[in-house]
Write a protein that binds this DNA or RNA. Sequence first.
RNA 1: GCCGGAGUGGUGGAAUUGGCAGACACGUCGGAUUCAAAAUCCGAUGCCCCUUAAAGGCGUGUGGGUUCGAGUCCCACCUCCGGCACCA
Length: 952
Amino acid sequence: MKYDFASIEQKWRDYWDREQTFRTPNPGDPPDAGFDPDKPKFYVLDMFPYPSGVGLHVGHPLGYIATDILGRYKLMRGFNVLHPMGYDAFGLPAEQYAVEHNVHPRITTEKNIANMTAQLKRLGMGYDWSRCFATTDPGYVKWTQWIFLQLYHSYFDPIENKAMPIAHLIHQLEQQNYYVGIDGELINSADTENLEALSGIGDPNVHKWHELDPGQQARLLDEYRLAYMDDVEVNWCPRLGTVLANEEVTNDGRSERGNFPVYKRPLKQWMLRITAYCDRLIDGLDDIDWPESIKLLQRNWIGKSLGARVDFAVDGTDDASITVFTTRPDTLFGATYMVLAPEHPLVGEITTDAQLDAVEAYQRRAESRSSVDRQADAKEKTGVFTGAYAVNPVNDQAIPIWIADYVMMGYGTGAIMAVPAHDERDYAFARTFDLPIVEVVSGGDVSKEAYTGNGPLIHSANDEVSLNGLPVDEAKQRITGWLEARQLGWSQTQYRLRDWLFSRQRYWGEPFPILHGPHGEIRPVDEADLPVELPEMDDFKPHGTDDPDAPPQPPLGRAGDEWKKVTIDGVEYTRELNTMPNWAGSCWYYLRYLDPQNKDALVGREAERYWMLSKKKDGSHHAGGIDLYIGGPEHAVLHLLYFRFWHQVLYDLGHVSTPEPAGRYFAQGYIQAFYYEDAKGVRVPAADVIDQKSNQPAMELQDKDEKELELVYEGRPVKRQYGKMGKSLKNAIDPVEVMDRYGCDTLRLYEMYLGPLEASKTWNTQDIVGVHRFLQRVWRNFYDADNGGLLIDEQAPDEATLRLLHKTIQRVTDAMESMGFNVAIAALIELNNALVKLDKLPRVVAESFVKMLAPFAPHVAEELWAVLGQAPSVAHRDWPAYDPALLVEDTIELPVQVNGKLRGKVTVAADADDSAIEAAARADPNVAVQLDGKTVRKVIVIPKRLVNIVAS
RNA sequence: GCCGGAGUGGUGGAAUUGGCAGACACGUCGGAUUCAAAAUCCGAUGCCCCUUAAAGGCGUGUGGGUUCGAGUCCCACCUCCGGCACCA
């Protein structure tokens, strides 16, 4: 009997499909057949793929194999396991593929999904396919749009610290619990102090709700909705023909997708008020088991800074003042000039006639430059003096006001006080323009460079307050207190995170459930009319251009009026023509898997509570969410931030039961590979690169140092680069080819054996034979290679074999719990190598071995399980348990060190006392030689570990 | 520049968290089988000294330190990878 993996794998794939082996019953009234409410649950989730149509490479299934192994393991450990899969089918990748092939995206998406499903089934994945859906399904789009309407109809209440229905805010305003300030700020009517500060009630700038006209009321509410339209500085990518979120723009000012230039320009777009959740998003990180590195990325991205706002009066004006944000109010006495962002609204007001031409020229230049240019010469400081002066509130000094593009309108107040002595950027600017530098924190040498460290304050006192001698943190507190008392400033928390730009000029996305009235009023689509489906269009392509001044043109603008125009009660509305970004669908898909067919809610209450809430041992719940989420860390400040935001809103509004979507997230590493570039940086097909010295293909010389090779492609020298595997890099390995040659079980084992799941690792095709040989050896332990006879022994195993089995069960079980799959496989290989030496395989050992192999190599395990005469499926059998008594050895071998160096080994009884061990150690001939002529100073006996004799 | 992470044989990686460094696998070398090759099987394999073996010396990026004992802890530095980047 040969190990015929092709037919074995086909047979068991068909079996799982036919028998629905991995279908997961749901709770409910009545529950699905086979649902056992007494079992604990395990919700394990992969980041679902884009059905891009280019096909999978071996890097894609890495995380999927890991979750599949864990899901199968947990099933055997008695959990109700939910392990679903679906498709993130909207968005740029799907649309670009459709454009390239000139087919409607719905057609290509369907085709690609079918293709990818076949590939995933070929990988032996134990998904519950009955829960599979695509984000493009109308039944799913309906609820994506519904959630958007929840965002539109909600605001973040700072007192409750959570999202609430906008109706609650309206009620508060009607009850006059709040008044409305000049900038639309809400003033608590009980907060008399604040009202007095604004000259009290009756101030023309403070209004009651009913004093506002309906238009003003609507605009006021828009200031608070979690989804709102606003004129904002957007990232406009003319080449892609769409705007992008900050998170989708690389740090050199280009689009993450396509690497095209991105320009800042003002545009009226849909925004999501994610900034309202800054603190919740930071605080929530403390309660979830995510890698610290990912938490840190999110914290840094949100960028919380504690500091102060300070008002500087503009010299020679009655009421003009500039508010700055600073994290270093302690250095206020060292402020020697101020800088406004070029687009700051006050610039026109304060600029003197003499400086007007220079200022306007600088503004035009700043405006015309793309973010790419602005980054490129970031080092060189440029700027122009406005001619105006501000008054430093602590010492009444007049300091010049400049404009410069190193200050950005989008952060803080768009204005800074410059303290060149203690800020590197201000220092460089002051040096360039010869502005004064005043040291106020001692400890550095400000004649050479800015000093940003701690130290006693100096030169910082006025008639009322002195900071001199204080360390930085105390000086901050004292000066902030003084500013607050004088109403010149106040402490302030500032965030780096901006609101989330949520519109795209794309066809292949969820339409907004929004109508625009003839006078610009916004009317949400009635829930009963959801989903708003995309119109059928022939010309769905984005019209990309190189002209940064060209206006964005949503493709839906080219749809017919029968779709665009909607008449309700005699009023003609126009549909919103932008679509949502592809992140929308991935923001809540993990909830839909719990109850994918539900027509009345995004997810049924009972299913949501069962799968999201984790039961504690005492029967109460703790906020668990997804028990294990595995995916690439490249989504750290994209999907992984966005979906937490949506989930927190849904939690606040009572639609879900846990404060966080995923209690545990695990960041998998990448599979990396070499790729090759010519002198111009153009990637060349890796398979055709050869080493001129040896005349061998470069792919077969991966171990060699590049310096020893002469790599050429078509005679041209090329350079080796190392990075993520991908079709565009021309270094992708097709998993189907690997499976054709070695089988799926081998591929699964190999990918897990490559190294720790979280590490990035190099694919090396020649290593695959190792795990393939392992499976063949396993097979030969069951079948006689000569006559095909079965080699199963019904007798109990000998003690040594039994001990080894139980030791292995312990090692594999421990490795599973810590996701050390490479180590688990090594333990199985070791056990199998020992079993090779037996004539026949004791049944007890064989059954336990097959069970442990099953999560990794499920097809061959099912086959061997059947060979053992057992009914399928091994996937539903209990994981083997180990007997602790069999792990304890009677005698143990102890290493003996002399002065910390290994000199011998002694075998002693496991329960031998220290003196007996010491005597045995001294008796070892080699140890005795080492001790000869020396005085023993000390003997250290670590029970069951080692002996160390210190001698001199 | 700032913030993370990582450096272990020819290669991928183990090491119960301070206790036998190099499990397991690839590769290489030797052998078996074969007309031959592939596949398969058996054995050896960190480096140095040595004809070989025993014994010994050196070894976890570099330099120091703590300790009976350091891949693991502390200090300084080097290299690579990832993220952020004029964020006040």
